[in-house]
């Protein structure tokens, strides 16, 4: 058993025994050796069920939103991406930082494709850090935006065909939305279909409406955790859309990454009277 895993169990046990928190969200075993599942530990004895290994891939921060008005503190295990997701949700004013206790876990990369371009493997916010920081990997802007650049190289007609083919696979399961920490509205526009914003039809138009709306609703707030692509059962490369928006912001205003603090205004949500409007 790894030292970090033992330390994690000890920490969770202590937090629950002393009543500092009411629940610890972490990862636990499944019956498959290559999969773990989010678990919600509420008693000191159950702290033994927590695991820390290469298969801890599921994002945990989103579960805070199951109860937006908590009584008592909630502890969450945070890797780099989870910590940025927490910042995302706190910055979006969906949860109070003081209602959280963050167990920081420096992460050496998990069994998920996104980890190859992760720029913050160490938690950016935490209350306790288990184990020393891990070295960050060098991720150039070229690597970060490689999938986007490849698509930008296509002609508009080719790009349309590409996305057309991808969107034709979408089954409106909304796993990408439900896993995304930037998707934190109490009620999604897509669920208000009687209003007519999002049709339930599985066709060219409605599939694209969902894809594009999702991308624009989260684009400038995306923390690049990769959950949307990991969970999509149809394998849609939807992170290329949010990363396209991030890349454009990067090109226009310099390096832009989300979720590094909990108080940075998001760029497309800002309005200022002195904004340039020479395009009007």
């Amino acid at each position: 058993m790894s030292d970090i895993q033992s330390a994690l169990r000890e920490t969770a046990k202590k937090l629950l025994t002393e009543g500092t928190v009411t629940c610890v969200i972490g990862w636990g075993e499944t019956r498959f050796p290559d999969k773990t599942t989010p678990i919600f530990v509420k008693t000191p004895e159950d702290a033994e069920k927590l695991v820390w290994n290469a298969h801890c891939v599921c994002g945990l921060a989103k579960y805070m939103l199951d109860n937006r008005c908590p009584e008592g503190k909630l502890a969450i295990c945070v890797r780099g991406c989870d910590s940025r997701a927490v910042n995302r949700i706190v910055e979006d004013k969906q949860y109070k930082r003081e209602d959280l206790y963050l167990i920081g876990l420096p992460c050496e990369g998990k069994d998920a494709p996104i980890c190859a371009t992760c720029t913050h493997r160490n938690p950016v916010v935490y209350d306790v850090l288990l184990g020393g920081p891990v070295p960050e990997i060098e991720v150039s802007q070229e690597d970060r935006f490689q999938a986007v650049t490849a698509l930008e190289g296509l002609t508009p007609a080719e790009q349309y065909d590409y996305w057309q083919k991808q969107f034709s696979k979408c089954i409106h399961c909304y796993a990408c939305r439900n896993a995304c920490p930037a998707c934190n509205c109490t009620e999604c526009y897509a669920d208000q279909y009687r209003v007519g914003w999002q049709g339930k039809q599985i066709d060219k138009a409605e599939n694209q409406v969902y894809g594009l709306t999702r991308a624009f609703h989260v684009g400038d707030r995306c923390i690049e955790c990769g959950e949307c692509e990991r969970v999509c059962p149809m394998g849609l490369p939807i992170m290329s859309q949010t990363r396209k928006i991030l890349k454009d912001i990067n090109d226009l205003w310099g390096n832009y990454e989300c979720g590094l603090t909990d108080s940075r205004p998001h760029i497309l949500g800002e309005f200022d009277l002195s904004d340039r409007d020479d395009f009007m």
């Binding site: 599942t37 989010p38 678990i39 919600f40 599921c58 989103k62 579960y63 199951d66 089954i171 409106h172 399961c173 909304y174 796993a175 939305r177 439900n178 896993a179 279909y193 049709g199 339930k200 039809q201 969970v231 059962p233």
Partner: peptide
């Protein structure tokens, strides 16, 4: 608690037969 409330399990399930009726 770990469930995200998505449609993956039911939409990939060969026996789930629920439907909604709507109009365009």
């Amino acid at each position: 608690h770990a469930c995200l409330g998505c449609g993956t399990c039911t939409y990939l399930c060969p026996t789930c037969y629920c439907f909604d009726i709507n109009h365009e």
